[in-house]
């Protein structure tokens, strides 16, 4: 039980986030209305995705330095979970945009470039499926993964901040920052980040353990 404390912490934090996220007083601004509460659920999905893709690229680089196949398993499992969270983040953002931006798919740079970044990671997963040889697959996909991460950060983080966008955090709109997020919301937002990321790490470890069982002949 001692090594499972962080899973319990994740569950406790998320129970708090779900209860507090719907019941605290929030500022009602513009067309957002009560939908600002989506901050506690939509933004952490991206935090989980970034965490997973970071784990993935670190393990890919480590694979390329030592050629240890275990690293390849870690990298691919993290990319899988990361794409899952990316899809969740994209779907929640699309629903949110439908009622605040006036359209599900607008020509918004953040939305479009995030879709492109997710496509690149889906291509990583498809690329893995297309190579039957396990060593060749590990090497080629590790190299691809490094380039995918090198594109992820400018596509989802840098370019949307340089151009006009409806999404908070662009050149002309205020974003998530210590100076412009309501104090009450921050009381929920930070526990939400920690709780959701811990939950995603839990799912990731389950995925890795399943993969290791599946490939146990290699890891003997």
């Amino acid at each position: 039980m001692a090594k499972h404390w962080w899973k319990a912490l994740a569950v406790l934090l998320l129970v708090y986030v779900i209860i507090a996220g719907f019941t605290i007083e929030i500022p009602i601004i513009g067309t957002n209305g009560q939908s600002s509460r989506g901050l506690f659920f939509h933004v952490p999905m991206w935090m989980c995705m970034y965490t997973m893709f970071t784990i993935s690229v670190v393990n890919s680089v480590l694979y390329l330095s030592k050629y240890d196949l275990r690293r390849d398993v870690y990298a691919s499992a993290a990319a899988n979970v990361g794409v899952f969270y990316g899809i969740l983040g994209f779907a929640t953002g699309t629903l949110w945009a439908t009622y605040t931006w006036g359209g599900s798919f607008t020509s918004d740079p953040k939305q479009m470039l995030t879709a492109v970044a997710l496509m690149i990671y889906m291509a990583y997963l498809v690329l893995r499926l297309s190579i039957p040889d396990i060593d060749k697959r590990a090497r080629i996909s590790a190299v691809f993964n490094v380039f995918a991460f090198a594109l992820l950060i400018p596509l989802t983080y840098i370019i949307p901040r340089m151009v006009d966008s409806l999404h908070p955090g662009s050149a002309t709109t205020p974003g998530f920052a210590s100076s412009d997020t309501d104090d009450h919301m921050r009381m929920v937002l930070y526990p939400a980040f920690i709780g959701w990321v811990l939950l995603s790490v839990w799912i990731y470890t389950l995925f890795v353990r399943y993969k290791k069982l599946e490939l146990k002949n290699i890891f003997k």
Binding site: K3, K7, V11, W202, I203, T205, L206, V208, R209, Y210, K212, L213, K216, F219
Partner: peptide, 23 residues
């Protein structure tokens, strides 16, 4: 969460059976 806990325990049982000591 209950589903995840059940999955966690099932995987742990498989690991014990196969002698893999996961985290």
């Amino acid at each position: 969460v209950i589903f995840l806990i059940a999955l966690d325990r099932k995987i742990t049982r498989l690991e014990r059976r196969d002698g893999i000591h996961g985290k």
